[in-house]
Simulated scan of single mutants.
Amino acid sequence: MVRELGLVGLAQSEYLYHFTGRRRSWPHWVPKEIQLMTPMKRLDAILRERQFRAFAPFGAAKEGQGPNGTARVCFSECPPEHFDHLILMRGFMPWAIVTTREHVNRLGGGAVAYVPPQVHEEFVRAGLGHWAVRTEPNSTWLHEREWRVPRPKGRAGLASVTAILIGYADWRPTKVPTGQWVDGLSGEELPGPEAPGAVQLEDYPALWKESPVWVWDSERREVVKYRPGELS
């Protein structure tokens, strides 16, 4: 049964964004190879592998205990009027997987609680630190409007997405093998790799071809939306 979440207000959005880059440090438990990737490379990997990598969030455990909070995939709820604020003022990079509140709810996810330190400590003691964000007078984090999907095994598969957000219109993901083989000279279709001169065809990942693509226009400070396959 599909959950009916009701209408969103002007300060809310049905869209949630998993941004693949932000100008800030990473938790030390995130693998170095992921930390060193550009936002474009991280998005490329998600499209190619059709899955998210999940990690424990900041503050989900007591200091010194390590990343023992439940791994999760994070999303930011973002109305159109708030989008340029995240990118221009808060360091988010315009590279993301876009989904919806309803989809995240169906996956067992939801919005996090923004609570004062003493309440956050209760979440941590209960083993629910991954559902709360600690707020203080000079550090509220409310601009992130964060939603999380717990994934204890550290992976979350992607059957489909609402849209793919990219930073400029001429970017394309890395092509992947299709399983189809042709003669490298004539282009004639071949039954498999054992045939002489066989070359495997490559194409853009299925998610890229099947999904709408939204391009961030930095001058107009808004997204330009393209239909599935229009940028393939």
Rank of each mutant, 00 (worst) to 15 (best):
T100P: 01
A54H: 11
G192L: 15
P228Q: 07
S76N: 11
E122Q: 15
K32D: 13
H28I: 05
K62Y: 12
S232L: 04
G129Y: 11
E121P: 03
W147K: 04
K41C: 00
G9A: 12
E144L: 00
F75P: 04
T100V: 08
G229P: 03
P193G: 12
E230K: 11
Q35V: 14
R90I: 07
V224Y: 11
V8D: 01
P137C: 09
I46F: 12
G108K: 09
G9F: 09
R24K: 07
T135M: 15
A195V: 08
P67V: 03
G179A: 12
R227V: 05
V223P: 08
Q200N: 10
Q12P: 01
G229S: 02
P150M: 09
T140I: 11
E102S: 14
S25F: 06
G9N: 10
E63D: 07
W181F: 15
A195Y: 14
P177N: 03
H130K: 00
I97A: 03
Y204W: 13
G64D: 09
G154D: 13
Y168Q: 08
F123T: 07
P193L: 13
P116L: 05
P117D: 12
T100D: 03
D203K: 13
A156T: 00
L207K: 02
A45L: 13
F83A: 14
A61P: 07
V119M: 14
F52E: 13
E102N: 12
H120S: 10
H82K: 05
A61G: 13
R106G: 09
N105T: 02
S186I: 03
W141L: 13
I34Y: 15
P173D: 12
G64A: 09
E146Q: 06
P39A: 08
Y15L: 14
H18M: 05
D217I: 02
P79Y: 06
I166D: 08
E14H: 04
F58C: 01
L10I: 04
L10H: 04
A195K: 11
A159R: 10
Q65I: 00
E63I: 05
F75Q: 03
P177D: 06
